[in-house]
Design a protein around this nucleic acid. Sequence first.
DNA 1: TCCATAATGTGAGTAACCCTCACATTTGCA
DNA 2: TGCAAATGTGAGGGTTACTCACATTATGGA
Lengths: 211, 211
Amino acid sequence: MEPTPAPAEDTPTITRRAPTQQRSRERVERILEVASALIAATGSDAMRMSEVAENAGISIGSLYQYFPDKGAILRTLAERYNAQGRECIEAELADVRDLEGMRVAFGRLIDIYYGLFLAEPVIRDIWFGMQADKGLRDVELESGRLNGALLAAVLKRLRPDADEAELDRSAFLIMSLGESTMRLAISVERAEGDALVESYKHMVLREMEAG
Amino acid sequence: MEPTPAPAEDTPTITRRAPTQQRSRERVERILEVASALIAATGSDAMRMSEVAENAGISIGSLYQYFPDKGAILRTLAERYNAQGRECIEAELADVRDLEGMRVAFGRLIDIYYGLFLAEPVIRDIWFGMQADKGLRDVELESGRLNGALLAAVLKRLRPDADEAELDRSAFLIMSLGESTMRLAISVERAEGDALVESYKHMVLREMEAG
DNA sequence: TCCATAATGTGAGTAACCCTCACATTTGCA
DNA sequence: TGCAAATGTGAGGGTTACTCACATTATGGA
């Protein structure tokens, strides 16, 4: 019913028990390592909680004393990777002084972030949303391609001199990011969502006009 | 192991049996209607296959003769909504003749598409990926906000005269769409993915330079 | 009309897996 | 040393997607 799901009522509890003792903290780390390895090997969907416990050398009950559910493990891993990426962003942007500096820094920042994605199967898996149906992703991808083709056709009419492959790519990106923008928009409160969609339109139109 | 998951080896089988008889085709429609209603009411995660069968007035076995698994129902619905959106895009772009026309058409197109999202709980649900953990989405959202804040701080330094709220929003959007771009990039073959990331950087830098 | 064959329908049952809970063991501390 | 709190255990409960052996219905030719 509610159009905008509020942005998390409480900070989600990641660990059930605050690990006070030394051994506990080591166990949490061990669990995360094992989970990481399993996700890298077979994906988070195929990762079994029983397998995590077994590989970590603890009982299933013990596992659930540290992580309230399977999602909590994935969220913890996601948060760690996010923190890692954030550090890299912060470092790159630290001493940007002018637009030229921004151009260089932003380019490198994105390259590094992208590199992280490419190198880490665990990030890739979690980023796609745990258990997200692969077939559904393919449907989305195809939709972006079809929509992109529609846009590309028009852009080619408007800019017959432009590089065709680049227009195709740009149109595909624009339409795919349009969907991403809307996903983002409906995840925040309505007024902010509307403003984000406006910002998106603004950015894309500038891109299309400048070629 | 493989860095780029190939874009679907076969076109995913949507319906198991080709419904040749009249009754069969009616059943498929009825199943989709019932599924839609259930998703709208409680979300695709809470939708039970047994419930779909019951509400459609058929047996669970019959349901599985038309849809090989739960995801197939969601994929079919997603494809239908995509087709609907595509029609609207095609119609809006049909007689765009110049950049000014594009400005108007694109703005309306996005508004309509966004309106579809806002109005249809089923699209919203499916678009978030079936079963995707809500907590995980919140983690992603928070990451976008934190990264956006880092970028916004720099942009404010570079453009002290610009509207602060707009810079905040723009930075949030840029960083969030950066993640979307990378998700897209790792869904396609490597060379295309790399090019998409370059296009993204290009578009964002133009935006940042133009303010 | 009647029957053989194919198409379609049925639902109890299976398998898989997340998570709980009642009880055992260990640790920290006075 | 002894007690309370913290931590550990794993068999089992409960849910749910999906199967399969068999029943029912439709089709098309003799």
